[in-house]
Simulated assay, not measured.
Amino acid sequence: MNEAPENLTIGTFAKAAGVNVETIRFYQHKGLLPTPERPPGGIRRYGNADVARVKFVKAAQRLGFSLDEIGQLLKLEDGMHCSEAAALASQRLDDVRAKLADLHRIEAVLTELVNECHTHQGDVSCPLITALHDG
C-alpha cells in the first residue's frame, strides 16, 4: 500500500481490507475495531494496523468463529495466551465435528431415500415424500 500510516479514509481502508464501508462500521459497533477520533473539522483516518485487524477478523470468520469468539481471540492476539486460544479453537473444532457427523447422517438418509425413489415406479407412493410426511 502506498498510503502513509494512519492516513487512510474509511473508503480506502475498506478497499485495502477487502470489505465494504458498512462492514467497517459494523465491526466498530461490535467492538472488534476501534473507532478513531475525528479531528476538528476533519475525517477519521485509519492505518495499516486497522487493515491487518480486519483481515484477522475475516480469516477467523472463514474458520467458523463467531464475532463474539473473534472478540475473545483479539484480546489474546499478543500471542502470549496460546492455551486460551487453543481452548476456543478446540470448541470450534468440536462444533465442526458435530456438524460433519450431522451431514454424514443426512447424506446417508438422503442416499437411501433417493435409491428407494429410483426403485419405486408406477402409482406407488414416493418414499421420499412419505418419509418427509412421517417426520
Rank of each mutant, 00 (worst) to 15 (best):
Leu103Tyr: 12
Thr9His: 03
Arg105Cys: 05
Ala59Gln: 11
Arg44Trp: 06
Met1Thr: 13
Asn20Cys: 05
Leu88Asn: 04
Asp95Glu: 15
Gly18His: 05
Val51Ser: 03
Gly122Phe: 06
Gly79Gln: 00
Arg53Met: 02
Met80Ile: 01
Pro34Lys: 11
Glu37Cys: 03
Lys55Trp: 11
Val124Thr: 10
Ala16Phe: 08
Gly122Cys: 01
Ser90Asn: 14
Ala87Thr: 07
Asp94Ser: 14
Ala101Gly: 09
Ser90Arg: 14
Pro36Glu: 07
Gln28Cys: 05
Leu74Pro: 02
Asp123Tyr: 07
Arg45Ile: 01
Gly135Pro: 09
Gly47Asp: 05
Ala87Met: 04
Leu100Lys: 14
Ala131Ile: 04
Val96Gln: 01
Thr12Leu: 14
Lys58His: 02
Asn7Gln: 15
Gly41Lys: 05
Gly71Met: 06
Val19Thr: 09
Asn2Met: 06
His104Met: 11
Glu77His: 09
Glu107Asn: 09
Lys58Gly: 09
Ile24Asp: 03
Glu3Asp: 12
Val114Lys: 12
Phe56Met: 08
Asn115Arg: 12
Asp68Cys: 00
Gly31Phe: 04
Tyr46Pro: 03
Phe26His: 15
Asn20Tyr: 07
Arg92Ala: 04
Ala101Leu: 12
Val114Arg: 11
Pro39Lys: 04
Gln121Asn: 11
Pro36Phe: 03
Asn2Arg: 12
Ser90Gln: 15
Arg105Ile: 10
His29Phe: 11
Ala60Met: 13
Asp50Cys: 08
Ile10Cys: 02
Val114Met: 12
Ser83Asp: 14
Ala4Gly: 03
Glu37Ser: 13
Val109Ala: 09
Ala4Ser: 12
Arg44Cys: 10
Pro39Ile: 02
Lys55Asn: 10
His118Phe: 10
Ala101Met: 03
Tyr46Val: 02
Arg97Gln: 12
Met1Trp: 04
Thr12Val: 14
Leu73Ser: 08
Asn7Ser: 15
Gly31Ala: 06
Phe65Ala: 05
Leu67His: 05
Gly31His: 05
Met1Phe: 12
Glu37Thr: 10
Gln91Pro: 01
Thr130Val: 14
Leu33Tyr: 06
Phe56Lys: 11
Leu110His: 10
Pro127Ala: 08
His120Asp: 06
Lys30Asn: 04
Asp50Asn: 15
Ala17Gln: 08
Ile10Glu: 06
Gly18Thr: 00
Asp68Asn: 12
Arg38Asp: 01
Asn20Ala: 02
Ala4Gln: 13
Phe13Trp: 06
Gly79Arg: 03
Arg25His: 00
Ala49Arg: 13
Pro39Met: 03
Glu107Asp: 15
Cys126Ser: 06
Asp94Tyr: 09
Thr23Glu: 02
Gly79Ile: 01
Asn20Ser: 07
Asp95Ser: 14
Thr130Ser: 13
His104Asn: 13
Ala108Ile: 00
Cys126Ala: 08
Pro36Tyr: 07
